[in-house]
Amino acid sequence: MNKLTHKLKHGHTNPITDATVFSKSYHISFEKPVDKSNIEKLVIQLIQDIGRPLAHNGIIVGHIKVLAKVSDEDFQFLSLTRLDRVDVKSSSQWQTELSGEFNSINLDINVLVFGYKREVIEEIVNGSLVVLRCFDASTPVS
């Protein structure tokens, strides 16, 4: 539902509608299997790359959340509200089973920010995902 339709349907306007929600799931296949340590580094880099162009004086006016899953019970949750701090939480299974390599991951990306169009956010997200899609396990992640 676009903003205009929304206003028509609900019969009101509200400054909160200036917020844009981008919420999408992705399946990312790696060129070579990647371990959890590198997945964590990659996803941290991903959320920072998404956040950088959307930040205002180093803070996100909204939030960016990423759920990176290697299985339904084995996942990491990342949240970004300011560029200098990424909050990372791991599922209980992620912490107990650190070994193993994975050919792919599923990502749920939820960006809610003020002042940006959905298309702009999508372009930023797609651009940021390249680092995961082209990841070469022989190159260390910074």
């Binding site: 019970e73 599922s91 939820n110």
Partner: peptide, 15 residues
């Protein structure tokens, strides 16, 4: 109560 189609917080809480 989350905004967006891909629920994230609920998975964290359920875990």
């Amino acid at each position: 109560n989350e905004i967006g189609e891909a629920g994230i917080d609920d998975k964290l809480l359920a875990d």
